[in-house]
């Protein structure tokens, strides 16, 4: 774990944009089974400010992540929240920035938030029939991948490790749902369930 890494103590999930509540609950349930941290979905009492990438119908992932990190600071302070609480934003729209055409997820090592866009994780993006179960599975694995970045992990070269870099959904599906032994050993002890 790098010195600037954050050891998450709890996860708070919230929708950004038009995310179906069943999908959010499904992702929270799946992630809570995989991590040894308390997980809860936040009530939708306000809108997260988003901005589009100039000239593209996409949310700016960097600005969205910065906005969520700012909100996470409040969650980390008692009595509202607990230190080490990470805010997980599940975004409805596709994300990118001025440099990259798209991102599935964004996080910073030691940052208090992660954001995962479900747009490209859904089969409908590729003209296929909707499959909420598949979308939720992909989204929860992406959340876990980004959370591990927050905890200090970098990408892994092993093909089956969850920390392997994936730029398309096929790669997300192929890399599986578990960390390799080396990556698992670098995560904080209480991070993984069991």
């Amino acid at each position: 774990m790098s010195p600037s890494a954050l050891s998450p103590s709890a996860l708070a999930f919230r929708a950004v944009g038009a995310i179906a509540q069943p999908l959010l609950r499904d992702v929270v349930t799946r992630v809570s089974r995989m991590v040894g941290l308390p997980c809860r979905a936040l009530a939708l009492d306000d809108e997260v400010r988003t901005a589009s990438v100039v000239g593209r119908k996409q949310w700016d992932a960097d600005r969205l992540l910065a906005e969520l990190e700012m909100r996470a600071e409040a969650l980390a302070v008692p009595p509202i929240g607990a230190p080490g609480t990470v805010l997980v934003g599940l975004a409805a729209e596709d994300m990118g920035n001025a440099i990259f055409t798209h991102f599935f997820g964004r996080a910073r090592i030691g940052g208090g938030a992660v954001v995962v866009s479900v747009a490209r994780l859904s089969p409908t993006f590729y003209g296929m029939p909707d499959d909420p179960d598949l979308t939720a599975r992909r989204a929860s694995l992406e959340v876990l991948h980004e959370l591990a970045h927050v905890a200090g992990l970098r990408h892994c070269t092993l093909p089956n490790c969850l920390m392997r870099l994936a730029h398309n959904v096929e790669a997300i599906d192929l890399r599986g749902g578990a960390f390799c032994a080396e990556c698992a050993s670098r995560l904080p002890r209480h991070f993984l369930a069991g």
Partner: peptide, 10 residues
């Protein structure tokens, strides 16, 4: 060419 497709850049 910018913006980069992460797959292409990789």
């Amino acid at each position: 060419v910018k913006p980069f497709d992460p797959d292409d850049l990789s």
